[in-house]
């Protein structure tokens, strides 16, 4: 009995010491997992997940502090990819985190804009140009559709314009055959 206790204690001590040594000596800053998670996130930097940007959310997921289904722009598709990467069970988008919307870009009504620069400061990707008391405009190619510019606007002159399908960005759809239509 005493043997058993001594042996197990010794084993635990040796392994514990080795692990402790390794934890100090092989300490690495940064987590490659964060990068992989960040690569899946859509980078809208919208903060709808409750974190200030995509990278902080990726860090929270990697640390196990956040669920994987808090990102509305990524949608169910993004949550599925995160579940695959992390070996978690897939969860549909959390209900309180809004519904998936079609991709849209912000559009400033130039008649109403008073040039207050508040939206410029709010834009996480610097996609709004203009200066004080000058009209502002959105560079639509760079806009991620995060809607962060909507609340600060004192005159509510920013609207979200859904991206229209045109001949140049139209995509072939998944073929639907007659049999599938019936089923």
């Amino acid at each position: 009995m005493l043997n058993a206790i001594i042996v197990m204690t010794a084993l635990a001590l040796v392994l514990g010491a080795a692990l402790g040594y390794a934890a100090v000596h092989f300490k690495v800053e940064g987590n490659p997992l964060v990068e992989q998670i960040d690569a899946i996130l859509p980078q809208t930097q919208c903060g709808q997940c409750g974190f200030p940007g995509c990278l902080p959310y990726a860090e929270a997921i990697a640390a196990g502090e956040a669920e994987i289904n808090l990102c509305p722009p990524g949608g169910d598709e993004g949550a599925r990819k995160l579940a695959d990467l992390l070996g978690h069970e897939f969860k549909p988008l959390a209900a309180e985190h809004a519904v998936e919307k079609p991709r849209a870009v912000a559009l400033i009504d130039e008649q109403t804009c008073i040039g207050c620069t508040l939206c410029i400061q709010a834009c996480p990707v610097d996609a709004i140009v203009g200066s004080a008391k000058q009209m502002h405009t959105v560079i639509s190619d760079l806009c991620t559709g995060c809607e962060l510019c909507l609340p600060p606007c004192p005159v509510d002159c920013i609207i979200m314009e859904p991206l229209a399908e045109t001949v140049s960005n139209w995509k072939w759809k998944y073929p639907v055959t007659a049999i599938r239509k019936v089923a």
Partner: peptide, 23 residues
């Protein structure tokens, strides 16, 4: 004590391997 000690050893090895490889 074989099962018990093997579990401890394996868990420690996995942790150790991860730390060492990471660095």
């Amino acid at each position: 004590l074989r099962t018990l000690s093997f579990i401890v050893v394996i868990a420690a090895i996995v942790q150790l391997t991860e730390l060492v490889i990471h660095k």
